[in-house]
Design a protein around this nucleic acid. Structure first.
Lengths: 317, 317
DNA sequence: TATATTTGCGTAATCAGTTACGTAATTAGT
DNA sequence: ACTAATTACGTAACTGATTACGCAAATATA
């Protein structure tokens, strides 16, 4: 298909379907050629039963990788043809135990010759190709089982998005964003508190002038994330990581990670050796992020925030 | 899938379908990830229209390799979303001319990033495989276009069947078969004539004793084909190839070809340099066979058979 | 110029799978 | 021992494709 050479590999799904259709269409004709009254879709079930064992619907489904309703339907069609017999399990009344009837076994013997020829034909076809389809499918199945295509695409997206994210130092131009981004998540999950207003309305006075820092993450020039380092004077910690906020619009763009990494670097450059933070366990993604960055949970410490139920620290190595 | 390693490549259709399903399932989720309100099946149509040209339903269908009703349905869905506009062709009232709406173009721009990521993901996946799926599909498409799977299997069947066919010299044990096989086809297409009875009832006297020969094709020991060489005394031809009959039961087993080839060999071994035959053009498979073996049509010659309307000869080189 | 054939395309039915859902039987948890 | 959860599996509805069919418009043919 010329078309697919144009679209590129994004259309691999469509292309696979077309090939699948072409192959299964011929499969039906091949059964006709051998005068075997059978449908291609029955084959996996037939094959599974050919070993002679009695199997339940669900076992069959698992075996051949179909859903159970699919097998259920196939079995009822095969029953009509008299190729299988069913039997209720006496020990477990839910189970429908299936096996090949003598008629079914007969048919399966007839199929034998066909299998030989089909195999030979495919083998010959395969020998004319550089790239082995069968093995390629096998490899794809394996790789997709390890990591789905969706997951792989998500990673690529994150990678590309990261490139568009830049982190810059706070300037008064971002005062509005600093407040809005924080207020957004705080008022979603909690209530704004006294200490919030102080810091958010006067970042210069309450954070920067006291020796702290604020970083802003820009995506396509738009400020979508903010984070502050607040100077602490308790003798143990140098800074508190606080007022971290990322817009929900920026979900999945890795901004949180980039921003937090940058703020840790900033702390390091300011000579910090220990950073403190407060959060709440209902903010799971945030906690995960802190954990990923090396923060460890610590025991309680007095805090002005009602919403805080977890405290963490990072020792800068 | 372990299952497919057991069944062998006959199940390649099933296996292809499973992979296809897995891939397209993720495709839908990928559109969601990029917050694009679009279905994977629309992609080929979208892509075709993205060049900006106005295209009819049928053109689209040919382009992307779908049936036209499929495209028709896709377009009506895309119309509902406002991604395309349709317009009746003024010069040809049957044609429904489709193009992307501005909304559709917008969406297509949004897709761009996604395409980049998906391509990158597939490329990366592909790099981890020994056998390239994309290229393998391409090769299969090419080879199947040249000769379908059905055709390939038919050839293999013929090959295998040929091995079961043996050709032996006539003995009185085959007298019954010689008559029955010939009567079967003659009375199906024509009427039995005087000369038929003579030869069929007395092969020893009318054929063998006069220096002719009869061969019998056995399939699994059963006589399913017969053919005779009748000595001619007209100075030009050595033998007439006649009384060739193959049971309809033996269709597709290549018996005709094997038998005729054997009888030509026999003629050669009897020192013949020119063979003659009479037939009728309604027996197309027979005429084709003779042609394949090198027989050429010749001009009329007197014949005792009413059913004869074509005469052929083979010059043995 | 009238009639037959071909073409474009929409609708309906079908197909091989799926998910959603309901029911009955079994097993687990307290 | 009784309720809750799980399991087996059948039915129904949906999905993305197909073929079959029919109508109307255009084109070819006599």
């Amino acid at each position: 298909m010329d078309f697919f050479e144009q679209t590129g590999k994004v259309a691999i799904g469509s292309r696979l379907r077309m090939l699948t259709d072409k192959v299964t269409e011929d499969a039906a004709k091949i059964y006709q050629l051998y005068e075997i009254d059978m449908q291609p879709k029955w084959f996996p079930v037939f094959y599974s039963l050919s070993k002679g064992a009695e199997v339940t619907i669900t076992e069959l489904a698992k075996n051949i990788g179909h859903s159970h309703p699919s097998v259920s339907k196939i079995i009822s069609e095969m029953l009509k043809k008299g190729y299988v017999v069913e039997r209720k399990d006496k020990l477990d009344g839910r189970r429908n135990v299936i096996s090949l009837s003598s008629r079914g076994k007969e048919i399966y013997l007839k199929i034998d010759n066909q299998l030989i020829d089909v195999n030979a034909a495919i083998e010959e076809l395969s020998n004319q190709t550089q790239n082995k389809l069968w093995e390629a499918i096998s490899e794809w199945e394996f790789l997709l089982a390890q990591k789905t295509l969706l997951r792989r695409v998500m990673e690529k997206k994150k990678e590309r998005d990261s490139l568009k994210v830049s982190v810059v130092d706070y300037t008064p131009a971002y005062k509005q964003a600093f407040r809005a981004l924080n207020e957004e998540w705080i008022s979603t999950y909690f209530e704004m508190e006294e200490s919030d207003y102080k810091a958010l309305d006067h970042p210069q006075e309450y954070i920067l002038d006291k020796g702290g820092a604020i970083l802003v993450a820009l995506y396509d020039g738009e400020p979508l994330g903010v984070c502050a380092l607040i100077k602490m004077n308790d003798g143990e910690y140098d800074f508190e990581l606080a007022k971290m906020a990322v817009s929900p619009k920026a979900q999945g763009k890795n901004i949180g990670f980039i921003l937090a990494s940058a703020i840790i670097e900033k702390a390091k450059s300011l000579g910090a050796s220990k950073i403190y933070l407060e959060s709440n366990t209902i903010l799971k993604p945030a906690i995960n992020l802190y954990h990923k960055l090396g923060f460890q949970k610590i025991a309680g410490k007095p805090t002005p925030y009602a919403r805080c139920n977890i405290q963490m620290e990072l020792i800068i190595g």
